[in-house]
Design a protein around this nucleic acid. Structure first.
Lengths: 328, 328
DNA sequence: AAATGCATTTCAATCGATTTTTGAAATGCA
DNA sequence: TGCATTTCAAAAATCGATTGAAATGCATTT
């Protein structure tokens, strides 16, 4: 900046002010400085700037799904979530620091904040970390989470309206005259357990006698859901006539497994997935599913966190869910 | 750091050296300083550190696919690529700055470098930016790219061995006695055109009379591939007996479209996809495809870029491809 | 007892910006 | 012409670390 000041024949503070569009500098001078800076390809050193300003304009995004392990979610819907976050941040001139799973514990999070690498956190997928995230938030960390919470959750949560999603699936099954439901999903995740509760609610609201069987899908991949379905089919006498799966991927796996066992979809069993990933519409049979809008959710995460950093209280929100009826 | 120095009753430089595990400080002193720092939750300010060191330990990753637009690739294989990059960087204590598509031009790239936000670039998917990336690299920017290059490409390229992949598909078709090939993919992308060339080579190497028809899939989504396939089927008299699609997703779309038109797969037409995404194995019919190892490729991108930053010349590499034979 | 060598530690300058304070020139008004 | 204001630019302090040079302390050698 000294160099630019010399070339523009002004002082360093004037260059600084010109570049940050301060009203304290004469418009003519400003133009001149900007031209000189551009001509010499000068860009403000962000480290010095951040050091002085005590602000980084960087948001850390924890993507727990990003893992090589079998257990990773590869649902494209995560992509849309990340796309929403990324684009919204870009528009606000905020940088996005992507945190590997390896760094996803309290100490690592705290470290990022105290070493002034990022100003706040967006956590995509709270998983089983509600306790740790709660502690972190109560400790004053700017934090916004994609997931599901309760009235007591001490941080801002944006998530699908899982309960409503569960109800939609339940009502759909009831319309189809189904009565032996299978819920496939790991209810130790709050998101999933809310869907289960919604399904239950729909069943309870009907005057009919409905059974709900639970099958804990502990992993997220196609493979594991397929294995789970096959193992399940070995153990039962009478198959369910409706399946609500925690994801479209899992729904596909279940459909494949059931068909392999001579159980036809949708004649013998109705199936509802979750997320409405693109291939759900092109699977055979095309899958009935619950759609949400992850891109908008991503944007909402950003606006809430940015508000929080400016001292405006963020507001948790549930994203609308919609039943997309296809052939299953 | 002054504060920690005072509390530990040593000087600031000693604290700095203790924290960076310098041999210039007495082991006992070091222990003491570390303990004090830990007790007070102190972390070195990365902005000050980077400013002084003129190094950020941050790598910018340009993910061109990450876009809300219809044209985005949502193949999970990108996830594995990103996972490999992310984990390898994590192990090297490097941070990952994710660049939104909005920032993907030369100026923005140069800006990131000159404002000392990141030390180098990993570009996932060169797309049609070979010229700009070439200029950038020739300008001295540390840069490693996932894609395909030529002998003249001035930057390090890691990519699938697309030519070999194309050959594998071609040989497979020949074994099946096919002779009217359809190549579905946008050959303006070098990766895709290499696959096309590999397919051609396989055809030429045989003594048989083989036709290859080209169908330019300009977008990457399931939907657009499905539309493309349907439009194509309207215009032709005699359908092909083999389809090599640029992705598994596109292969699925083609299979659906062909089946809808009463053309059976694999009886009437063989299909080979690319990437071996998890659902390829569970689609009906399970898809024959070309597998690569994007996770390892991601790691290789990182090691090459890190080498480059240390002054060691990176080496471009082609990732082995493998034909996974399933039912199509 | 003085000199030498070595291991530690401290001092002071530096990285590149921002901001408060200060100062000089220009303007307005009596 | 003289004094009070207003504009604009410059000086200097600051953010929080790192590092080469200088200083200190202690053991060993002569």
């Amino acid at each position: 900046m000294d160099e630019i000041a010399r070339l523009a024949e002004v002082s360093k503070p004037t260059v600084s002010r010109a570049l940050s569009d301060s009203p304290l500098v004469n418009p003519a001078t400003k133009q001149h400085v900007l031209a000189v800076a551009k001509a010499h390809g000068y860009a403000v050193n962000r480290n010095a700037q951040n050091l002085r300003n005590k602000r980084t304009n960087t948001i850390a995004v924890s993507l727990d799904f990003l893992s090589h392990k079998k257990n990773h979610i590869s649902d494209p819907f995560i992509f849309d979530l990340l796309a929403g976050v990324s684009e919204a941040l870009g528009e606000l001139n905020q940088d996005l620091l992507l945190c590997a799973p390896i760094h996803n514990d309290t100490d690592a999070f705290q470290q990022i904040l105290s070493s002034k690498v990022a100003d706040g956190f967006i956590v995509l997928g709270q998983g089983h970390r509600e306790q740790m995230l709660g502690d972190f938030a109560r400790g004053g960390a700017p934090l916004v989470v994609w997931g599901a919470g309760t009235d007591e959750t001490p941080y801002c949560v944006i998530g699908s309206d899982n309960f409503a999603g569960g109800q939609l699936a339940g009502k759909y099954f009831l319309e189809k005259g189904r009565s032996r439901f299978l819920f496939a999903g790991d209810t130790t995740y709050r998101e999933i357990s809310l869907r289960r509760a919604g399904l239950q609610q729909a069943a309870d609201d009907s005057e009919r006698s409905i059974s709900i069987h639970d099958l804990a899908a502990s992993q997220f991949s196609f493979e594991s859901a397929f294995d789970l379905a096959n193992n399940y089919l070995q153990t039962i006498d009478e198959p369910p006539d409706a399946i609500f799966a925690f994801s479209d991927t899992a729904a596909m796996a279940f459909i494949r497994a059931f068909r392999d066992h001579g159980i036809s979809v949708p004649e013998d069993v109705s199936v509802v997935g979750y997320n409405d990933i693109p291939s759900a519409a092109y699977f055979s049979p095309p899958i009935t599913t619950i759609r949400q809008d992850p891109y908008q959710a991503g944007r909402l995460l950003v606006s809430n966190l940015v508000n929080m950093l400016e001292g405006i209280a963020p507001v948790s929100a549930k994203i609308k869910t919609e039943l997309i009826v296809r052939e299953t």
